[in-house]
Design a protein around this nucleic acid. Structure first.
Lengths: 229, 229
DNA sequence: CGCGAATTTGATCGACATCAAGTACCGTGG
DNA sequence: CCACGGTACTTGATGTCGATCAAATTCGCG
């Protein structure tokens, strides 16, 4: 599993002060004896579940990348989150999914029945607490993203995105984006042209380097952090 | 407590199929014998807690209205939610608040120590589950609001806002907004002028009626619902 | 190498922001 | 009850950032 040494972030299971560390962890979805995970694979752009569908399973990304989004009736799309290896997604407290999830690239997931997790949560306070912590992590991300979508400029949005991806998937100071410009745009509430222009400008300023459109090296994180503020 | 008969919504404690109805409820913050609530009042525009402050208490609005927001360094503000009577706010899973909370008008709250709630959650699976459900309700609202902020037009944002306020605080088909145009703008990611113009246009089209700038009667909810889609 | 898709870049447009007055609302005090 | 003053709201004129429309160019896979 990737990135276990990075700072905790959205939907990566997190364990607070109350809970004995190690009682559960990255293998959260198999943390309880009654919960038996299943592995499954999805191809590029394949739908994992649709908005408003019954939430039968909860998922953890094993390999690849997933986008969760909502659509307006005319096709405008808002991606709420990208799910990367280790992240749990599709965990609803209600009976239906509230967003659509699709594999961005060929991806492998581990899934458990939501009903099994629900039953475990009912009897095991540690599981219930863990579910709360994960949902709370997702809420934190959504709160930050509301500020971005409501009030940040295009340049600030892109800077925030680059810092988020750097934190979540950089290895040896560089990272390969699994998603295209269109997905980035729909995550940031911009158009793909604006994302492309902004990245080009940052490249021109020497803030980042490209090795192909999706392989990025940040050369000036401080500059991005200042822009973002 | 107001609006108990309305459809459940954000941060109003909700009880799913697992939990015996009535084991807790609107008086959530006193649901456990070890939890002793305190009542307190705040004047108009008074700060209840600041972003990044230690989260000592969890609050429930008894009377009045509260806004929760984040700021950028240059003062741009994004209001993430309005809290109305019955709503719980300030419940963090971490140790610090992630938004600032202020009374919009003179307001009364009931508060309990977060540590007491945490302790109760640790030993009582129903409390732990209830915390998860409330956080999950907040997440649902945030997911909807990301779509609004990232992709809806100004007219759609205002329509969504009107329908939300109608659902949450209308009595006899009308409602009195506790917040001003500036707060609405910072909730919807617009300027107060755009909010005002959009409301004026809807008024001109007969979709809504005013009795003073903040007393609103919706005359065509269907039209608003269509706009919103 | 070649081809379709993804990305970049350019030109123009438009929705909403900004700047700037007016007007209405409402709590206060006479 | 009414006059007053300050704040909130509305309305108008203009500006601008990012969207849209439209080609190039590059990428990456077979």
């Amino acid at each position: 599993m990737l990135n276990q040494s990075l700072a905790a972030h959205v939907s990566r299971p997190q364990w607070g002060p109350w809970l004995p560390t190690g009682s559960a962890g990255p293998d959260f979805l198999a943390a309880h004896p009654s919960i038996v995970p299943t592995d499954f694979s999805y191809g590029r752009n394949e739908t994992i579940y649709g908005e408003d569908e019954p939430a039968e399973y909860v998922y953890q990304v094993v390999r690849g990348a997933v986008r969760s989004y909502k659509l307006l009736s005319d096709g405008r799309r808002q991606i709420g989150a990208f799910h990367l290896p280790g992240d749990v997604f599709g965990m609803e407290s209600g009976s239906n999914h509230r967003l659509t999830a699709e594999a961005i690239i060929d991806s492998a997931v581990r899934m458990v029945k939501r009903s099994a997790l629900a039953a475990a949560a009912k009897s095991d306070v540690n599981i219930a607490y863990a579910l709360w912590m994960m949902t709370s992590g997702d809420l934190r991300h959504a709160e930050d993203h509301m500020l971005l979508l409501g009030r940040k400029t295009a340049a600030q949005r892109v800077a925030t995105f680059l810092l988020e991806m750097d934190r979540r998937l950089s290895i040896a100071g560089m990272f390969a984006l699994p998603m295209g410009r269109g997905d980035i745009a729909d995550y940031l509430g911009l158009t793909l042209e604006t994302v492309s222009r902004t990245l080009s400008q940052l490249h021109g300023e020497g803030v980042l380097g490209f090795s192909g459109a999706r392989q990025i090296t940040l050369r000036n994180r401080g500059r991005l952090a200042v822009m973002d503020a």
